[in-house]
Amino acid sequence: MASAAVRSLETLLQTRNLGSALPAMAAPPRRLATGWLAVDHRLGGGWSLGALSEVVGASSSGRTHLLLATLAQATRQGQVVALVDALDRFDPATAAAAGVCLDRVLWVRGAPVMVEQARPGVIEQAVKQAVRAGDQILRAGGFAVVALDLRDIPARCLQALPSITWLRLAQVVEPQDTVALLLADAPVGRSARGVSVLLEGRAVWQGDQVQSRRLAGFQPSWVVRSATGVTTGEASRRTAWEGAC
């Protein structure tokens, strides 16, 4: 009886051209692999195209690795990507070593501001400039990934932006085959189809001897938040993010 009612409701929605409202009938979201296999596994194949997603975490948690892996994945497929670097902290040599084809990257460099020593208003100006640049790149279209790097920017500066800002960015990216990525220290905003990847990590050192020791990388843990729920990555711990999100 219930199924018949559901069917009739679906038929009614379709006759009114509202069929896309039915989740079962909506086309499966197209995705762009992050290049980090474990995260791809959790995301169901990668970032959703046409969505605003975010990568969140403290420094030394693996955020840059996730960003560079995504850029490398896209550029190796022959696509072009854009990186809006609000504080001008991108290192091209590191990116090239991570497999990013640099000639397919549009790099927008913000002001090289030291957050701790910046005069009042300078960081706010840098944030506005970065958001406007990201908006213009998204509107131009044709980029596989548009990353807006707002890391190391104090939360108060991001909170000073109107909340409609992120909604507008999400609307711009929605009809496009583009992944819009926000990178920040704390959750900022994502679209309904986007995800928040919350990262934590600890440094891993190799070498027993003092002379041979070197930084091997980070052992990350992550929480993926989306509109449909929360999935956790390997070795994840319940952290402050659980409350923050």
């Binding site: 290049g35 980090w36 296999l37 474990a38 791809d40 596994h41 420094s59 030394s60 693996g62 840059t64 690795h65 560079l68 892996a69 001008d88 902290r89 991108f90 290192d91 590191t94 990116a95 991570a98 497999g99 090289p112 030291m114 890391r151 190391d152 990590g201 440094a203 891993v204 930084l215 091997a216 990388g217 980070f218 052992q219 990350p220 390997e234 070795a235």
Partner: peptide, 20 residues
Amino acid sequence: AAEAGPGERAPVPAHLRRWR
């Protein structure tokens, strides 16, 4: 890291964010 599978516990590489 790129070669590591989902079940492996390889650390991800550390990338430098350079202060100009």
